[in-house]
């Protein structure tokens, strides 16, 4: 049932890997002497929502960044819908950590969302009515339509997160990668974001999110990917998100009682 960290190439019982939104093989990333991500395999199925879970410094964000080509891996392969990343950039959308940018940057909400249309607009393409309509539509989906002309520094943390999600929606991708989309946001924003992600899944899109709140994993996600530099476990929440795997991932950092409680949350 449970697939523990393994080095063999394919996931048991799965065929048609070439159609998988994301296949990672033997990915190793290092910032210095110590690897941040070591020999990780990952397979993501179409139309699912996967949570990447692990303690601080376990390489969750690094895994995402390596998949996206933001950091260069030491070794390993990444396949997106059966091809290399470069061939499929138009099918991936990305929501970075909110705190990774300077929100004092002089620009408006609508301009940030329009950045999601960069691949359509190109270097000198004019922003036409259809592009504005698309960006406004994406703002509407995250409940931020009325904020289009605000300067981004005037937004709350939750509102900023929604703008980033709207920008990813504008990318009109098939695979959505999100880095801690629920970090430091208010309850209303968390609800709005999860409802958008679930609607994406309903459209047959695939969602992978770095997630830190263990209490909401079973409620929000179909699959989990547990990582602590190496992959610990991968699979459906019902089987892979267990007391054993959490213990392996977090070691002594979670109290046993807490782990038991989390693992009992019904999927």
């Amino acid at each position: 049932m449970l697939e523990l960290a393994s080095t063999h190439g394919t996931v048991p019982g799965e065929t048609g890997l070439e159609n998988s939104p994301l296949v990672v093989r033997g990915l190793t990333v290092s910032y210095g002497q110590k690897p941040a991500v070591f020999s990780v395999d990952m397979t993501v199925q179409t139309g699912t929502m996967t949570a990447i879970i692990g303690p601080n410094g376990a390489g969750k964000s690094t895994l995402l960044k390596a998949v996206l080509g933001i950091v260069k891996p030491l070794s390993g392969q990444v396949q997106v819908f059966g091809k290399t990343l470069n061939a499929q950039r138009g099918r991936i959308a990305y929501v970075p950590q909110r705190a990774s940018v300077d929100w004092d940057f002089p620009t408006r909400v609508i301009d940030v969302v329009l950045m999601g249309l960069y691949r359509q607009l190109g270097l000198l393409g004019r922003v036409r009515a259809q592009h504005m309509a698309r960006a406004t539509d994406c703002l509407d989906r995250v409940g931020m339509r009325d904020f289009a002309n605000r300067q981004i520094g005037q937004l709350s943390g939750g509102q900023q997160q929604r703008i980033f999600l709207a920008r990813a929606l504008a990318q009109d991708a098939d695979l959505y990668l999100l880095d801690e989309p629920f970090a430091g946001v208010d309850a209303a924003t968390e609800k709005a974001i999860i409802s958008v992600l679930k609607s994406l899944r309903a459209e047959g899109k695939t969602v992978v999110a770095v997630h830190h709140d263990l209490t909401t994993v079973a409620e929000y996600f179909d699959n989990v990917f547990l990582i602590n530099t190496r992959k610990v476990a991968e699979g459906p929440v019902a089987t892979a998100f267990s007391a054993d795997t959490l213990q392996l991932t977090y070691g002594g950092r979670l109290a046993t009682a807490q782990i038991d409680q989390l693992a009992q949350v019904p999927g």
Partner: peptide, 20 residues
Amino acid sequence: IFWRPLKLSTFDEGFARTLG
């Protein structure tokens, strides 16, 4: 000529990279 990528990568370099 490079207005759009300059602005984009100045604001959010990681995101700009994912766009190629």
